[in-house]
Amino acid sequence: MIILKKLLKRKLAVFGLIIIFTAIILAIFAPIIAPFSPNEQFFDGLTIEGAPLGPEAGFLLGTDLLGRDLLSRIIHGSRTSLVIGVVANGVAVFIGAFVGIVAGYFRGWIGSVLMRITDLMMAFPALLLAIVLAAIFQPSIWIVAMVIAMVNWVQVARIMYAETISLSEREFIDAERSLGASRIRILFKHITPHLIPSLIVFGTLGISTTVLLEATLSYLGVGVQPPIPSWGNIIFENQTYFATAPWLVAFPGIAIVTLALAFNLVGDALREILDPTMKGRS
């Protein structure tokens, strides 16, 4: 609650929260809010030559190359972005936290092996790996989310590793140990709670990265597959028309930037409030 109060004092964070809230509402109530079905191809949705319509009275943001309403597709696309953003990033943060904390707390050979794997993943060209993985498994929304999680956990693991190590060397941990607390008790009662601020911050910032990666994979055609609308695959489907119908790229593009920006703004504000580097505390 204190965190929320502090967040609401920052203009940019409030702006970000409003966007995120709007996106959630749009995603939940997409069928009610959207003026048309995202997949309906309108007979009057194309010009006589068969080109997409520009923004006009009937179709607020115009139509795409198949004569579907762009606004409705963008509204339904918010579901894809949010579901993948939250699920993929949640899994990534979970894996990253697990690997980082285990490696940092138990060290020894488990720690070495885990951190060498992390180093290996750092050297992998992330997008290339994601594309190969997405090509191996037939992409559905959940597969795309898992692929992104498998690529994105690495940063979290490194941060958690460093923080766990510095925490476990602090005096209050020594004190607990000398009082006879077990290793597991120290880990769950005294180490993990101190890592939560960082997890919240990187959990928020990571959604932004995830939204962008999903859009990129879908743009390359290996992410979420049409006809399920995703902001990335709307651009993928329509890019041949970019010279005559730039709104087909601009509107979904704006949607991606706005959502990613919102999570970045909130995440950055949280970082300043929670100060996870613990500069102010040690």
């Binding site: 990129t216 743009y219 970019f242 790229v249 593009g253």
Partner: peptide
Amino acid sequence: VVSFVGVSAPQFAVGILMLY
């Protein structure tokens, strides 16, 4: 704020709009 927009913009959309 501009720098935040920069890190939030997907490269493919930026590229296509620059082309346009």
